[in-house]
Amino acid sequence: MNDRQFKHIRCTINSRAVDAMVDVRASLTELLRGEFALTSVKHGCDVGECGACTVLIDGEPFNSCIYLAVWADGKDITTVDGLAEPDGSLSPLQQAFVDEGAIQCGFCTPGLILTAQSLINRGEPLSDEELRRELAGHLCRCTGYENIFKAVRRALDESLGKKG
């Protein structure tokens, strides 16, 4: 189709330098799922309401469904696939999700883990209320958020304790 436009981008995905020709209309969700088979990036609403497609871009959480793929040029992108160790062992935050029973259907899990990881990376203490507010962009229908909150609280506190 003659009005279809592509642009060449270079970016880093999970610490690996990559490049791709992207349709200028495509979302980052489509690029990651389609081109790079990173199916941990979930489709929940396509309009930035549910948080399931969250990825980290230069360390900040974004809804990748409303982030154009072409904007990723020059960016450092992390999906949940990038958090585990090379040998497959889980990060402390991922392990806290497992231990606290924070996972049920698992569809909101990758996005939530990434937002929580960005909070841990920030290295600042958060009150319970602040933490709930930081996580409130993610919808979950299985857990009532209870055990997710426990898992993030624990992982955040432990990471701060280690640094302190």
Partner: peptide, 15 residues
Amino acid sequence: PRVDAKDKAAGRAKY
């Protein structure tokens, strides 16, 4: 522990 928790936490579970 849930038998599927690790795969779901790692983003490997397939839907």
